[in-house]
């Protein structure tokens, strides 16, 4: 693919991603989902607003806010995988594959739509949270640069991983069910809502393998005062480690995701979609 083709693909993919996202949030289902999933964390923040964290001067809501943003990004894995599996089942991927350059455009579009979904979620939580949560350093450029940087790195780690999972796991309902439970469980176990030291010690070994833990570390490092580092494992912000692990996940996803997706997309045909349609109709 030469530079002009690449640009065309990116432009078509960006258009596709924007239309997909806009069509989703303006549909009744999409609107309800978006409102619900962003109102829920806000309710938690309001509820925990002034609850003090024992032994510190910071409040629980301040600790939880970066965690909520990390979860929004981590759910990007699940929603990307879910959308990919669904759109393979319903023939969207086949439709894209039938036009020249359509599969590449589809992948860019899927990533753009998932990124928009995650970013809108973050904005919807972040704006009210500035007024709800005490002690957010809204005047600090470091906070906003940090938020931008961790969001970008988080998307880079999570979206290709979502494409990888969506290419391997066939059933969207498996991703929607198991994926949701696993992501939520992992978020809790990653100390996003309570300091990790309170949890079982074996979790402290397993959980740092996954990107969501490191997103939490990175985001807390820009949201919380220096003294809060005492709550982390090792008592410091392990920012370099966080960048390293997230970078590894991004590399893994970017290397393997497209290969697996291409392999999966090659097998798509009208009769494959029809067979799944028959299966789905039987289930209903």
């Amino acid at each position: 693919m030469n530079a002009a083709d690449l640009l065309t693909t990116l432009r078509l993919g960006a258009t596709r991603g924007w239309i997909t996202f806009r069509s989703y949030v303006t549909s009744r289902e999409g609107f309800t989902q978006t409102v619900f999933w962003n109102a829920l964390p806000l309710a938690v923040l309001i509820w925990l607003r002034d609850a003090p964290l024992p032994g510190t001067t910071i409040v629980v809501s301040a600790l939880v806010l970066p965690g909520i943003i990390a979860v929004s990004l981590a759910f990007g894995v699940m929603s990307t995988a879910y959308n990919l599996a669904t759109e393979r089942e319903d023939g969207t991927l086949l439709r894209a594959k039938a036009v020249p350059g359509g599969t590449s455009g589809y992948v860019v579009g899927l990533s753009v739509a998932s990124a928009l979904d995650a970013v809108i979620g973050i904005v919807l939580v972040m704006v009210p949270a500035m007024f709800i949560v005490p002690g957010v350093p809204v005047g600090s450029a470091l906070l906003w640069l940090g938020l931008l940087g961790w969001t970008a790195l988080g998307l880079l780690a999570c979206l290709p991983l979502g494409i990888l999972i969506g290419s391997v796991v066939r059933n969207p309902r498996t991703i929607g069910g198991l994926g949701f439970l696993a992501t939520t469980g992992l978020a809790i176990a990653s100390g996003l809502f309570t300091p990790l030291q309170d949890l079982w010690s074996w979790l402290q070994v397993v959980v740092p393998v996954f990107p969501v833990y490191w997103l939490g570390v990175g985001l807390r490092s820009v949201f919380l005062p220096a003294e809060a580092a005492a709550l982390e494992i090792g008592g410091t912000w392990r920012v370099l480690e966080a960048v390293g692990v997230l970078g590894l996940w991004a590399a893994l996803g970017l290397l393997l995701g497209p290969v697996l997706l291409r392999r999966m997309a090659r097998r798509e045909s009208g009769s494959a979609v029809e067979a799944r349609r028959q299966l789905a109709l039987q289930r209903n």
Partner: peptide
């Protein structure tokens, strides 16, 4: 292709223009 549920939320003109591009 036999459509089933693909691009259900897209608008008719939008989908045709996008795929044409």
């Amino acid at each position: 292709l036999q459509s089933w549920r693909d691009h259900g939320k897209w608008r008719v003109r939008e989908l045709l223009a996008h795929l044409g591009a």
